[in-house]
Every structure is written in C-alpha cells, then in structure tokens.
C-alpha cells in the first residue's frame, strides 16, 4: 500500500510512471486510430457524443466497481442490479403511476440494498466475492423476472418520466449529449475525493493490499467492504434510472452487458485484478477506451461483422500497453522503496 501514497514529483519522467499513463496512451491511441479510420463524422460533435454517452453509463458503474476491485473484491451483480432498479422505477412510476421521484428513490434504494446484501454475505461467509456476486447476479435477475411477471404480467414496462425528471436523467443536450455524462463527472469527482482525500481511500488501498495487516491496524474491514458493495449497487441502480428515463421504460433483460464491460473498463484503466492498485483517472480513461472502440467501429464503414474481433484485439493491445507502463511505474524512477 505504500506505493499509493507516494508523492508524485513533476516532470516527464514521473509522468510516465503515473499509474494512469498507460491508460492515457491506450485511450489516445484508439481515438487516433478511429479518427483516421472514421474521419470527420467520428470527430464531429455527434461522433463524440456516441462514445461519450456509452462511456458515461459504463463509467458510472465502472468507478464504484473499481473501488470494489481496488479493495480486492469483484462485483458481478451489477447487471441484474441495473435491471432490478430500472424495473422498480418503471413499475412504481409507470405501472402504478406514482410520482417519478418516488420510483427513483426506490430504485436507488433497491440497488444499494442489494449491494449491502452482497457485502454482508461476502464479509460474513468469507466466500469469494466472485461467487457471492455471481449468485446474486442470478438470484436478483430471477427475482426481478418473477416479481415483474407477478405484478405486471409482462416483462417490459413503459414509463413516462415527468418533465423535470426527464430533464435531469433522460435528456440529450443539443440533441446529442446524454445528461448521463454530467452524472458520470459527478461520480468521478466523488469517487476521486473518497479515494484520495478521505481516510476511507487509504483504507480501501490498505484492504486491497493486505487485508490481514489492514485488520491488524484497526481498519473496520467489514464495514468498508460492505460500503463499497453498496456504492457499486448504487452506481448500477443510477444507470438503471438514467436508462429508464431515457428510453421511457424498462425490460427485465437489460444491463447484463455491464457485468463484463465494467470489469474490462476497470482493468484497461490499470486496476489490478488482485486489488491494491489503481486510480480514478485510469478507470475513466479505461472506460473511454472501451467506449471509443465499442462505437468507433461503426464510423469506419467496415463490415460490422468484424466489430467484436477488432474490439477484442484493441482491448488486448490497450491492456498490454498499460501493463508495460505500469511495470515502468512500479520499477524504480522515484527514490522511494516499492513492492513488486
């Protein structure tokens, strides 16, 4: 954990040793790649909106997931949490006609509570978070489906948000840029503050670095981990709310793509799967990289059959670049002694 609190001196040498430098190179590289291949439409505001809108929603989930991963856990349940929260909103405010804000608060609560449940089970049972959250991924999707069919009798529920809520959660500024981008910025600021300015941030790195010594130094390990799962549930629920307001309804199957995409964004952003290492700027850049690759392909005019192949190759290159620079970051340069 000592690597995280080291002071960064200015200058190019220390710049390329920052944990997010590899992610920056990766994001720039894919942007330039698609700027050349996609041309003017990709670089126009509409083209930028394409990947920013996708990145914003993914980022709102990926940032809290990154905190969970820095603390050494995983959260696979985000896909079902998104579906559960968007269904909660659509059923309460769409089917039963309650005010939209009631549905939104309930949706965010549902997400947070599932997160707390995840954290509680993980810390009480000491089972790997991978297994526990995989179980909740299934259980919550089944619960969502069962309850939705029981209450509504169908699996897709329409909802029209009231004008204020629609403006806050589901509009496109200038007809292009989703308001989710601003929510993402908000989440990024909040997560950065937690990670770098609060004592909580040190605890997260400490738990991810070595949970036994973290406990020995008096860190409330269980509480921190539960809080992180709660945050991750909240993030997924927020995206559920955003999508429900944007697309005027919810479907029980939504969200599953976020399970792996959020982990990809976090890992491309330089967070170690083993925990204890990572940065918010890195995760933001990782999210952008994923979104640019995900959307850029459609501006190239190439046969979209190859999209997934190109996505896979570019992601692999991005992670390799990242790893190279991280090794550089962790090996020498500064005078302080480091692990690894």
């Amino acid at each position: 954990m000592s690597t995280q609190v080291k002071k960064q001196s200015v200058g190019f040498g220390s710049l390329i040793r920052r944990p997010e430098f590899g992610a920056l190179i990766g994001a720039l590289a894919v942007y330039i790649f698609f700027a050349i291949a996609g041309g003017a439409p990709f670089m126009a505001p509409g083209g930028s909106a394409s990947w920013l809108n996708v990145a914003a929603e993914l980022g709102i989930i990926a940032l809290p997931v990154a905190l969970v991963m820095i603390a050494g856990d995983l959260d696979l349940s985000v896909g079902s949490v998104l579906a559960a929260s968007s269904m909660t909103l659509a059923i309460l405010s769409g089917f039963y006609g309650l005010p939209t804000w009631v549905g939104i608060i309930a949706a965010l609560l549902v997400g947070t509570l599932i997160g707390i449940a995840n954290g509680y089970i993980v810390t009480k049972t000491n089972l790997p978070a991978f297994v526990v959250t995989l179980a909740t991924l299934f259980a919550v999707s089944g619960l969502t489906l069962g309850l939705t069919r029981l209450l509504v009798g169908s699996t897709a529920v329409s909802m029209t948000a009231d004008p204020t809520t629609k403006a806050l959660f589901g509009t496109l500024l200038d007809g292009k840029f989703s308001v989710a981008i601003f929510w993402w910025l908000g989440v990024a600021v909040l997560v950065s503050w937690i990670l770098y300015k609060s004592i909580f941030g040190n605890w997260i790195f400490a738990i991810g670095g070595d949970v036994i010594s973290a406990r020995a130094t008096g860190i409330p390990v269980a509480k921190v981990r539960i809080a992180l799962f709660a945050a991750s549930g909240f993030g997924a629920a927020l995206v559920g709310v955003l999508q429900t307001c944007m697309y005027n309804g919810a479907q029980v199957a939504n969200g599953q793509s976020f399970v792996f995409n959020s982990i990809i964004a976090v890992v491309v952003g330089g967070v170690l799967l083993t925990g204890g290492y990572g940065s918010t700027i890195g995760v933001i850049l990782g999210t952008l990289t994923f979104a640019i690759v995900n959307q850029g392909i459609y501006y190239t005019g190439w046969n979209a059959d190859w999209a997934a192949l190109i996505l896979g190759i570019l992601l692999l290159i991005a992670v390799l670049t990242n790893n190279t620079f991280r090794r550089l970051a962790l090996s020498g340069g500064n005078k302080k002694e480091k692990k690894n």
Partner: peptide
C-alpha cells in the same frame, strides 16, 4: 458486447 445496453 452491446447485449442489453440500449445506449450502445
């Protein structure tokens, strides 16, 4: 990779 994601 865009499964279940209307935005993508």
């Amino acid at each position: 990779s865009n499964f279940g994601n209307p935005t993508a």
